[in-house]
């Protein structure tokens, strides 16, 4: 399967991007797409392999009080997060899945024809990048304090 075929048909086609491309004559080569698809795949693996366990333990069992009392106490949780494994945790559980989500949302908006892809792309990947920087920044700040 070629790279073009992997992409959705007409994603970059002039006819589908009228607001951004009134003449509809040029066809820009998208050099950045392999990066977004790569982050999408990596995030997809993390979403499938890591997120079920993280959501189960942190999002369900912890608030329900089904973990041992001190399992995720403030001391324990902060010692774990503000460490080198914590950086990897943030990368695998926050940053990469965010880019996966951004990619799916961008393509989903295109599928239901909401907004223009040129703008959606910047908003989605921009938001994923900002939140990733925030996550890694918090972990690094915790390591330094």
């Amino acid at each position: 399967m070629s790279k073009q075929a992997m992409n959705k048909p007409a994603m970059n086609k002039p006819a589908m991007n009228k607001p951004d491309n009134p003449q509809g004559t040029t066809h820009k080569q998208a050099f950045d797409e392999p990066l977004w698809w790569g982050l999408f795949s990596a995030g997809g693996v993390c979403f499938a392999v890591f997120l079920p366990a993280v959501i189960l333990f942190v999002g369900v069992l912890l608030p329900l009080g089904l973990l041992p009392a001190e399992a995720l106490s403030y001391q324990r949780a902060s010692a774990w997060l503000f460490s080198v494994p914590g950086v990897l945790f943030a990368g695998a559980v926050v940053c990469l899945p965010l880019f996966h989500a951004a990619h799916r949302l961008r393509h989903g908006l295109f599928d239901i024809r909401v907004g223009s892809d040129t703008v959606n792309k910047k908003v989605m990947y921009g938001a994923a990048a900002l939140l990733s920087v925030l996550a890694l920044g918090v972990v690094l700040a915790g390591m330094l304090s």
């Binding site: 001391q75 997060l81 559980v93 899945p97 949302l105 996550a135 918090v138």
Partner: peptide, 28 residues
Amino acid sequence: EATVLPLVFFILCLLAGFVSLLQGADSW
């Protein structure tokens, strides 16, 4: 495609948890 919507919600919650850990025990 829509599975990422609750995913984004959980990630935002988790990010709030990161920030709360930075703020202290009460916040956590």
